[in-house]
């Protein structure tokens, strides 16, 4: 069975376009660009969170033809500062007890499910929101500055943990403003401009 490729064709967001690219399964594609150029808006369009023009495909499946919640279950957007809707950490997971190994890899204690969300630090929030998304086992992850709130050491641990998803043929689309991080994690690097996407190094 071949794993479907993720394709973005002539997408226009509120910040510009057309944006066209292909992301291969089991690979990490990084998108860089100055702040305000619309990196988050592009990821939001890919997850169909904002109205946009153009088509997005997962294999033969077209975004516009797929029920929206089904699409978002397969193409999960992880914002830099994700929201929480219940009191404790565990309520945001199907079964956090089954994720002990991942918690350890991210430097979090196994009992953090009982923690009230209100007392989480921004770094804890970010790692738990990554884990919450990864636990859904979607074929595509849209990561918006996934280590922005982490110290250097924790960021490296989180990077490696995220890159391990590639073994399960997950497609990683990774927005970062950190060139060194892009160097470390990318199989393919793009630069976002208002008028389109460029290959990094060719711009």
């Amino acid at each position: 069975m071949t794993v479907p490729r993720f394709r973005c064709e002539n997408v226009h967001t509120a910040a510009g376009g057309p944006f066209t690219f292909v992301a291969e399964p089991g690979r990490c594609l990084t998108i860089m660009g100055p702040s305000g150029v619309g990196k988050s808006l592009l990821l939001r369009a890919l997850a169909d969170l904002d109205p946009h023009r153009g088509d997005v495909f997962l294999g033969a499946l077209r975004q516009a033809d797929c029920p929206p919640h089904d699409w978002r279950r397969q193409v999960i957007y992880v914002p830099a500062a994700a929201g929480w809707w219940a009191e404790t950490v565990a309520e945001h997971f199907t079964d956090i007890a089954a994720l002990t190994a991942d918690l350890t890899a991210l430097g979090l204690p196994a009992d953090c499910g009982t923690w009230p969300v209100a007392r989480l630090s921004s770094g804890e929030r970010q790692r738990l929101s990554l884990l919450r998304a990864v636990a859904c086992q979607s074929p595509v992850l849209l990561l918006d500055e996934p280590t922005a709130n982490l110290d250097a050491e924790t960021a490296l641990a989180a990077e490696n943990w995220l890159l391990a998803r590639k073994q399960a043929d997950v497609t990683l689309i990774w927005v970062t403003h950190d060139a060194a991080q892009a160097q470390r994690v990318a199989d393919h690097r793009l630069v976002l401009e208002h008028t389109g996407l460029q290959e990094a190094g060719h711009a």
Binding site: H69, R72, G83, W85
Partner: peptide
């Protein structure tokens, strides 16, 4: 006020009505 928290449910594939229930 709760935009981020509502969208946090939508991005995980929750239905809109479910995300807005409370």
């Amino acid at each position: 006020r709760e935009r981020v928290n509502i969208e946090a449910q939508l991005v995980l594939g929750q239905r809109f009505e479910q995300a807005m229930r409370t």
